[in-house]
């Protein structure tokens, strides 16, 4: 085989790019454009340091595991709480019986999602004191409809509503959020691209080949997730749950893999029921999550216990983030998938 082909296929790749990361980078850029010289708040550098320390620790752990031929991390370091495991395993049992709607020739899988994310913006303090800058925070909501053709090599369509300021923290927040929205102008987008390669970029959606390659055995699946996420996130277990939530929210995961992902989540130490009656975008379910103690952040997945259906996922901060109070939801996504006969 050609060495360039081998190189292209070298698997060092994360299947999806997190929207929160893209949004954060965009906010940094816009902040810089409007107020050059104002840096992002200090919390960020602290987080970066924490991440790099954890990454170094993870590398060390993995090196030791590889060196001692301990090949898997799943199953021997504890698991989710009994209650969380029961919810997840029940959902898995219901999901495996689910038959995903078939996307016939010429039809599309339509993945509708509502996405909430946090925006941070640096504002100049008008008191005139040198260096006395402040930050404001708010959340934006964006609705997206992704149309995936039966033959995924054909043209996909992605309608994005653009970001609409939704929740405000503090007096200045609303003013700045609307000012920003005005500066950016019309942000709704209609995108089309073969094989999901929007923005002239390689597709950020998991391919059918990638999805087929994930083991359906939960322990093997979790081991693979741990290995694929070496050096990412703030802890291997926290990152594994974030990875599962990210994959599920694409709406492209087939029922057998969704079921295996639920079972894999049930094997992650620290995963517990975080809310028995969680409401997300007006839908009620049970929230299963894990607190990342390094950053006081919680990743939840919300499941309808009656059907095993994923309602969505959310991120909650357990410590104040600037003007955002502890306990606030700083991001969530809900998804709904249907089969339609045409794309716009």
């Amino acid at each position: 085989m050609d060495e360039l082909k081998l190189l292209r296929e070298l698997r060092i790749e994360h299947p999806t790019v997190k929207e929160s990361v893209i949004n954060d980078g965009r906010a940094q850029l816009l902040q810089h454009i409007v107020s050059p010289g104002i840096k992002k708040n200090k919390r960020r550098s602290k987080t970066a340091l924490r991440v790099s320390l954890m990454a170094a620790a993870t590398f060390g752990l993995v090196t030791v595991l590889v060196g001692t031929n301990v090949v898997g991390l799943a199953g021997w370091r504890g698991a989710a709480s009994a209650q969380a495991a029961e919810v997840l395993n029940n959902a898995a049992a219901l999901t495996i019986k689910t038959v995903d709607p078939r996307v016939g020739p010429g039809q599309y899988l339509k993945v509708e999602s509502t996405n909430l994310s946090l925006s941070t913006y640096g504002v100049q303090d008008t008191s005139g004191i040198v260096g006395s800058n402040d930050h404001v925070e708010w959340t934006d909501t964006e609705k997206r409809s992704l149309y995936v053709p039966a033959n995924r090599d054909q043209e996909w369509v992605w309608e994005r509503s653009g970001r609409v300021p939704t929740t405000f923290f503090g007096d200045k927040s609303k003013e700045v959020a609307y000012q920003q929205a005005k500066e950016q102008g019309e942000s709704a987008q209609y995108l089309s691209a073969v094989n999901g390669a929007f923005y002239d970029s390689p597709s950020t959606f998991p391919s059918t080949k990638e999805l087929a390659a994930y083991p359906r055995d939960p322990r093997m699946l979790l081991n693979k997730i741990y290995l694929e996420n070496i050096g990412s996130g703030q802890s291997i277990d926290g990152q594994a749950l974030v990875f599962i939530a990210d994959l599920l929210r694409t709406g492209l995961v087939p029922a057998d893999l969704r079921s295996a992902l639920y079972k894999a989540a049930a094997m992650i130490p620290g995963v517990v029921v975080t809310e028995n009656q969680a409401t997300l975008d007006d839908q009620q379910g049970i929230s299963i999550g894990r607190v990342e103690t390094v950053s006081n952040f919680r990743q939840d997945i919300i499941i309808d216990p009656e059907t095993g259906q994923l309602i969505g996922e959310r991120q909650v901060t357990l410590e104040p983030l600037g003007s955002v109070p502890a306990g606030s939801t700083i991001g969530w996504t809900t998804i709904r998938t249907t089969v339609v006969d045409s794309a716009p």
């Binding site: 994360h14 790019v17 893209i22 980078g25 923005y199 002239d200 970029s201 950020t204």
Partner: peptide
């Protein structure tokens, strides 16, 4: 940024 951020990130 919207066009190429993902590409640079990956």
């Amino acid at each position: 940024y919207d066009k190429y951020a993902r590409m640079i990130y990956r």
